[in-house]
Structures are given as C-alpha cells and as structure tokens.
Design a protein around this nucleic acid. Structure first.
Lengths: 223, 223
DNA sequence: TCTAAGTTAGACCATTTGGTCCAACTTAAC
DNA sequence: GTTAAGTTGGACCAAATGGTCTAACTTAGA
C-alpha cells in the first residue's frame, strides 16, 4: 500500500546483546565523567560565561561536536556540573548528632569542612560563584534540602544549649561562621597567600588554621 | 612653501577659558561616575564576561558609543571599576591601634565590616568574584598595600597578646575570620536567606548577627 | 554669527562562540 | 562480509558582542 511502511517493515532489526549495551553504557559514563570533570575545572576558573565550549572540549580532550553529542547545550552541561556539585557539597552536613559531645562533634565538623575546602577548591569556588550571582540554577534545588538539613543541625545545637552543654547562642550563626571561615581559606586562597604567604596545602598551615579556628569559634561556647 | 603648514598656521586657535574647562571636566566626571556606577552594578551581578557593554550602557542610560568615548575598552572600564573598589575596600582596615582596649577595638572593627557588607553588597560581591578567579587584575595592586596594612594590624594584635590583654592566638587567623564571617553575610546572601529567612537589611537580624559574631569570635580571646 | 573643539548616536565590521549538518568511521548483530 | 546503530569530527551557520567610522549635534571662543 504505502512504500514507506513497506521499506520500514523490510528493514532488518538489530537487537544488541545485554553485554554490548552494558559496555556501551560504561563507555558513555566514562566519557561523560571526563567531560564533567573538565567542565568543573573550566567553569570554576572562568565562570559560566567566561568558559567556552571549545575550551572545555579541549580540556576534556574531545571535539566540541563530540561534547555536544553527550550534553546537548552549554546550559545542560553546566546544570549537570552543578547537580553533581550539590550532591558532594551537602555530604559533610550529615555528621553530628545529639548524643555526641558538642565540642568533639563541632570540632570534627570544622575539620571535615576545612579538609573539604583543601581537597575540593574547584567545587568550593564554583559553588561560591553560583551563590554570588544569586544561584539562578542552584537555588530551587538547594533551598529545600539545605534548609531541612540545617534545621536538623540547628535542633541538635539547640538541644546541647538546653542541656547546658553549650553557652547560649543562635545556632544559625555558629553554622554560618563555620561555613564562612572554612570556605574562606579555599575561595580567598590568593588573598590568604598574599597576606600570610601560605595555603592549606601546607600541612603546617592547615593544622595551625584548624587549631586557631577551633579556639576562635568553639572555645567561646564552653559553659 | 608647503600649503599643509600654511593652512595649519592660518587655522584660528581657540583658547578655552578656565571656567569652561572646569565645567567640562565637571560634566565628564559626573558622566564617568554614572558609567562606573552602572558598570559596578552590572559586573557584580554578571561578572566580567557575563556583562555586556550594551547592558552597562543601557544601565547607565548612555549609548554604547558614548560609553566607549569615556572608556576606550571594556577591560579599561573594568580596571577602573576595580581600582575604585580597591580604594573603598581598604578603608575599614585603617581603624584600630595599640592603645585601645582590644575588645572594644575588635568589636568596632567587626561592626564596621558588617555594616560595610550590608551597605556595599555589590562591591563585596565583585571583590569576591575577582579573588575567586585568582585576582588577575587586582592582585598586583592589592598585594603590597594589603600585606602592609595587615602586617600593621597583626603587630597591634600581637602586642595586645604580649601585654596579656588577649589570649594567645595567631593574629592572621583572627583577621581572616573576621573578614570571612562578615563578608559571608553579603556574598552568600541568598543562601543565608534560604536558610535563615532573613538578611542584614533587616535591622533585627543585623544586630543579632553582630552580637553573635562578637560572642563567637571575641569571647574566646578573654584571658 | 561663524566655526573649531568636544560630544553623541546609528550604521557597520570582525571576531567569538553556541550550536547544526553531514559525511566518515567504528562496533557488533546478522 | 554486510550493514544498522552508535560515535566522531570538520565545515558551516547565526547570533551576540567588542569595537570603529562617520556624520550630526552642541558648546563656546572669535
């Protein structure tokens, strides 16, 4: 009747084996990860607008066309980078609980955050940049989970205060202060280096920083 | 002999009066200031690459050509914005001295920095962005004056410690912590708002923040 | 009034860049 | 081997954008 359907029906079908599907998916994942990694580095250094697809493609060692085969637009690539970032970002927030000793728990949290800043400066910078610009992409996804997790931490800190284990303070500001100080050492790295001549990569400076931050932020809370 | 020189010689000279020169300069200054202001707003929101000259020109209510009459390239405009920013930025660092009571002096400094963050969020954001990207433009000019001023503050804090007025601490980290926390409330405004629901523009939140930061950062230093 | 000097804007240009198209190549089912 | 499906890259396109050119307009000295 209709030779379009006829040719379509005649066309021999190919059914890939389960093994080949898996192999292909695995290869795709590896390549996507490489591109995402290159994109993170490039975006965190030059920002969304400052980084070009050519640059990212070159950094990932693929052609621009190939990059666009895996991520169809620049925006999409950026969003995926940010989503992965957000996932990693919220991890350290899952630590302390009410039963722990507050000074041990908060000290650990401070250390984890500072280690995180030292080990993931790119993530830290990109996160900072995004928030600076009003978090056009992150905010919607960030708001709810962040708010909830912080709320939980606030409750824990408040309970420590109620039990008299901690001097009364507004828990929000303690959390903000921990974030602000630890991230500062990553994000303002060049300024720190200009003033102090050292960075967190120097183990001595890392220890000194951690110890000073513990003194400054936590000692004042002893009842 | 040469009609080029002849016509040049014949050309009547105009010698502007002192008053007209002054008037013209004054008008230029006003216009340049308006453009710089628009540029600050735009750059701080979208970054160097994210902000277009069209956008800035529109924000300043002049044509792009006219903007380029006053600042011959985008880079030049950006550099001038950053230079003005740097000047304003270093102002609060000129306050405390050895004779003052350390808690009063540091408390004042904390307040001044927090007020500055509240009143100049654009400057704060742009400064943050520039440092994040490695301060390609600012670093050379920032390094020396910043290092010197911080050095002076470090000396003052150290002398307070030596006099037993302050618990021993590495002065650098105290200064970094004050910067980090106060700037955080401006730069991470959207995050603060997402979590706490309020910003520094709310006077109640401002006072609460200042009081909490004073407790956190300064109480631990009482000998 | 006449016109040099200063100012302004619209048209235009060249480059960058996000993204498309198509042809070639690789893989693996038949 | 044959060929459908998946992958890759070079050529190309269209929009955005930094910057120039030119002509007109304004100001103010002569």
């Amino acid at each position: 009747m209709n030779d379009k359907t006829a040719t379509a029906a005649e066309r021999p079908k190919r059914t890939p084996t389960a093994a080949s599907i898996k192999r292909r998916q695995r290869n795709q994942e590896i390549k996507r990860a490489a591109i995402l990694d290159a994109a993170l580095r490039t975006f965190s250094h030059y920002g969304l607008h400052g980084a070009s697809l050519d640059q990212i493609a070159q950094e990932a060692d693929v052609s621009k066309t190939n990059l666009l085969y895996y991520f169809s637009t620049k925006e999409e690539l950026y969003v995926q980078v940010m989503q992965e970032l957000l996932r990693v970002w919220l991890l350290p927030l899952s630590s302390f609980s009410e039963e722990q000793d507050p000074f041990e728990a908060l000290g650990d949290y401070l250390r984890i955050k500072l280690e995180f800043s030292r080990d993931n400066p790119e993530e830290s910078r990109l996160f900072c940049m995004e928030i600076l610009q009003g978090a056009p992409l992150l905010l919607a996804e960030l708001q709810q989970p962040l708010h909830d997790r912080v709320q939980a931490k606030v409750a824990v800190i408040q309970s420590w205060i109620d039990q008299g284990k901690l001097k009364p303070i507004e828990p929000y500001h303690l959390i903000f202060s921990i974030w602000a100080t630890t991230q500062h050492y990553a994000d303002f790295r060049v300024q720190i280096e200009a003033v102090a001549g050292r960075t967190l990569d120097d183990p001595g400076f890392f220890d000194e920083t951690l110890s000073n931050l513990k003194t400054l932020l936590l000692e004042s809370l002893r009842p």
